[in-house]
């Protein structure tokens, strides 16, 4: 793998290897059970009885460029990664990051109140807090002794 990388690298750059990933930095076992890891952005969803928290990794996205589309049972995230600005005479030697428009939509674990949503984005991590709709909360019915 390392020699293949070197080969590709040399082909791309047309120069001797000036920068190279070390073998230790680029070989590893692929993690299992994460089939959606190449989607952008990747999402985690947390819940308790009253609320849902969605986090998404959006490195490189300006928070102002993120659009949230929230319905009572779905959340959609869309936006665009900044395009690469390669000037004349410049060359990419590694291109591993995603680019272009992205869009994801996921089902929420229960119905939420679309009026009670807050979102923040810090260090390339988006966090959306959603409150469970009152009508959707489980009710405890006390059984009275006859």
């Amino acid at each position: 793998m390392y020699s293949l990388e070197r080969h590709l690298f040399n082909q791309l750059s047309g120069l001797n290897s000036l920068i190279n990933g070390l073998p230790g930095g680029t070989t590893f076992a692929a993690p299992e059970g994460r089939s959606r890891r190449d989607e952008f952005p990747r999402l985690n969803i947390w819940k308790n009885d009253n609320a849902v928290v969605l986090t998404a990794e959006v490195p490189g996205v300006d928070p102002a460029d993120i659009d949230l589309n929230i319905t009572s049972d779905k959340i959609g995230i869309s936006g665009e990664l900044p395009s690469r600005n390669r000037a004349e005479g410049e060359a990419y030697q590694r291109l591993e990051r995603s680019s272009g428009k992205f869009q994801r939509q996921v089902d929420l674990p229960f119905r939420i109140d679309t009026e009670k949503v807050s979102a923040e984005c810090r260090n390339g991590v988006l966090k959306v807090r959603l409150q469970r709709a009152e009508a959707d909360k489980p009710r405890k019915i006390a059984v009275k002794a006859a």
């Binding site: 308790n48 674990p109 966090k127």
Partner: peptide
């Protein structure tokens, strides 16, 4: 660390962790 105290994981596509990478520089 971004612990969601009081919440349980309902769906997961990524883990949170540190990053490390090395490059040889001429």
């Amino acid at each position: 660390p971004d612990n969601q105290d009081g919440f349980e994981k309902a769906y997961a596509e990524y883990e949170v962790g540190n990053y490390e990478r090395q490059f040889q520089i001429s």
